[in-house]
Computed example of a mutant assay.
Amino acid sequence: MDKDTAEQALAIIRDVIQNTRDDLVAHNWGVIWMIHAFVNFAGAAAGTMIDRQELPVPWYLIPLSVVALIDILLVLFLTERDRGVRSFVEWQLWGIWVVFIVFILAGTAVLQLSGASSLLFCPLFAMTSGLSVAMMGIVFYRRFLIYAAMFVVVMVFATMVPSVQWWLVGVAWWCTMFIPGLSMYRERKGRQQESDDARIL
């Protein structure tokens, strides 16, 4: 591959990345992720109560199911679509998180059937979360890779300090959702202001 071809390929990749971010900003994902940050944190905090009660692994699925339902409803009600049609980016997001749910359920079954300690569910959850966030970083926005690395750290520390493991997961999820969400929200407001100014002129 010569230099010109390589530069053209890089330009195409940059355009794809920018268009992906533009799609997320335009369809109100910033607000959605900011709200998800608090919902996910609350769900993680519920894991601490299950740890203290020393309940079996399937009990973790109760708060996680509630969180998933709330998150889905928020997406359905707050996403702004073009003529009601899901964008390509939105389909990719759904795909990533459906895979996440499938692997969480599979991991729950493995832990339950093997008789492993229920405390291992949190590191497993952190690992699966990190993988899904890493997929978002690869497909959408490279800064998500930073948050994926955060989940790796949480996964390791969860085995060392299980008494606070779910708080660590909650903080990681809050950062993963709120910080990019706030950035996109501000960008969207800025674009709307520019659009309003252009109309006035």
Rank of each mutant, 00 (worst) to 15 (best):
G30K: 05
R21N: 13
I17T: 08
I35C: 02
Q18N: 14
G30W: 02
A26Y: 04
A37F: 03
L24G: 02
R14E: 11
N19Q: 13
V31F: 10
T20C: 02
H36C: 12
D22K: 11
E7C: 03
I12N: 03
D15R: 13
V16N: 01
I13Y: 01
N28L: 09
W29S: 07
L24T: 08
I32E: 05
L10S: 06
L24F: 12
H27N: 15
D23T: 15
N28K: 11
I13K: 07
D15V: 00
I17A: 09
W33A: 12
T20V: 01
Q8P: 00
A11E: 11
N28A: 10
A9Q: 05
I12A: 09
I17M: 08
H27L: 09
A6C: 01
W29K: 02
A11V: 02
R14H: 08
A26P: 03
Q18E: 15
I35T: 04
I35F: 02
E7K: 15
I17K: 12
A6M: 08
W29M: 09
V16M: 07
A9R: 03
N28V: 09
H36G: 07
I17D: 06
A11G: 09
I12D: 06
N19V: 01
Q8G: 05
R14L: 07
I13E: 07
G30P: 07
N28F: 09
L24P: 07
W33Y: 12
M34F: 08
D15T: 06
H27T: 15
I35H: 01
I13P: 00
E7G: 02
A6R: 06
W33D: 09
I17P: 00
A26I: 05
D23H: 13
H36S: 11
Q8E: 14
V31L: 14
E7F: 14
I17C: 01
A9I: 06
W33M: 14
I32Y: 04
R21E: 15
I32N: 04
W33H: 12
L10H: 04
D23G: 14
V31Y: 12
Q8Y: 11
I32W: 04
V25Y: 02
Q8N: 14
I12H: 04
N19M: 09
R21G: 04
A11Y: 04
A37E: 03
A11M: 09
H36A: 13
V16C: 00
V25H: 03
V16Y: 05
I35W: 00
A37Q: 03
W33G: 08
A9G: 00
A26H: 06
Q18C: 03
E7N: 11
T20G: 09
A11D: 13
D22P: 05
L24C: 09
L10P: 00
M34G: 10
N19K: 13
A26F: 06
I17G: 00
D22G: 05
R21C: 05
D23V: 11
N19E: 13
N19A: 05
V16H: 01
W29T: 06
I35E: 00
W29G: 01
Q18I: 10
D23M: 13
V25I: 15
H36D: 10
D22H: 10
G30F: 03
N28D: 14
L24K: 05
M34S: 12
A26E: 11
H27F: 08
W29L: 07
H36Y: 14
A26R: 12
A6I: 08
V25F: 03
